[in-house]
Amino acid sequence: MRYLARSAAGRPVVGDDGGFVPLSAAYPDAGSVRDALAHATDGLRGVDSLPAARTAWEAESFGPFLGDPGKLFGIGLNYADHAADLSEAPPDEPASFFKPATAATGPGGPVRLPPTAESERVTAEAELAVVVGRTCRNVDESEVDDVIAGFAPVIDMTAEDVLQRNPRFLTRAKSYDTFLVLGPRLAVPEPDADDSLDDVEVRTVVNDTVESRNTVANMHFSPRELVAFHSRVMTLEPGDVISTGTPGAHPVEPGDSVRAEVDRVGSVSADVVR
């Protein structure tokens, strides 16, 4: 994989598993990660060929890979096991919803729980997110790789007791500030890589205990299907993020630490506070 990222101070970089260089070394016309997303759809330039010294990832602190995300989609009940856990039948079509941009936060969080008067049961959910790199409409699934910039780990949060009171409260249950933790790096497949992601495992980890896990192959709708489907509903734009559903949610309390782990893509963690 190659990566796009932003330092905690907002400086955009491009890199690989061995480290990173300033984004401007690869794309002088790109002043931000969002500017580079269209380049990512074709595969990023190799770091070894760039006129800049490589820096180790550990030498820098990183914020969310996008400082200005576009539309934020969530997908419900996209793993059969998760639907069964909730005693719900899997939907025949993607069960999608929106989260506001103000719900997004970055690595470390913290995730801030709402007052107990509003919600006493909040769950954390690890997910694989797919990020759009080009403006598109009515994309065929066979051509969807031409508009995908890459993939990232995210933590989705739900005020579950709010949702249980009435399913029409979904937007509120999902939209509290900090209720979507974006990972530190956007993973971009190597140019011409045949990467189905089917064997990628997604894990929800709370306080270093794996609470749920499943593989992308067990999704009802694959990441590529989700991009194609939503492009038939609306115009997708660079920086739109589709969280593809969770293998399982776990309740969290102040003092907990939550982590989303996605094989070959990366991980992101956040502390929980009230």
Rank of each mutant, 00 (worst) to 15 (best):
F151V: 08
A228D: 02
F151I: 07
A187T: 09
L182Y: 00
D198E: 08
L180E: 00
R232P: 12
S175P: 05
R232H: 15
Y176R: 11
V154M: 06
L226C: 02
D177R: 11
T204K: 04
K174L: 05
N218A: 12
L182P: 01
A193I: 06
L197V: 04
P167M: 06
T235K: 11
E225W: 15
H230I: 12
F221Y: 08
T158L: 10
D208S: 08
Q164N: 13
R165K: 13
D194K: 15
M157H: 06
V162H: 05
E160P: 13
H220Q: 12
T171L: 14
F221W: 07
F229P: 10
S222C: 09
S175V: 04
R232I: 12
R172S: 12
M157V: 01
F169A: 14
R213F: 15
T215K: 09
R213L: 09
R232K: 13
L186M: 02
V227Q: 03
V205C: 05
E201A: 12
E160F: 01
L163K: 11
E190S: 14
P184H: 05
N214C: 11
P153Q: 01
R185M: 07
S231V: 03
L197T: 04
D195Y: 11
V210K: 05
F221E: 00
D177Q: 09
L163T: 03
V188F: 08
T171E: 11
S222Y: 09
T178K: 03
L236P: 07
S212N: 03
A159T: 00
T178R: 08
L186E: 01
G150T: 02
I148N: 00
D208M: 06
S196M: 08
L182K: 03
S196F: 12
R213C: 07
A159C: 10
M234D: 13
T171V: 14
E211F: 12
P189Y: 06
A187N: 07
V206M: 08
A173G: 06
D156Q: 04
T158I: 05
S222K: 06
P189C: 05
D177C: 05
Q164L: 13
Y176V: 04
L197F: 04
V210E: 09
D192Q: 12
D198P: 11
R185N: 10
L170H: 04
V154Q: 05
A173L: 03
N218S: 12
V202S: 05
P189T: 07
A217V: 09
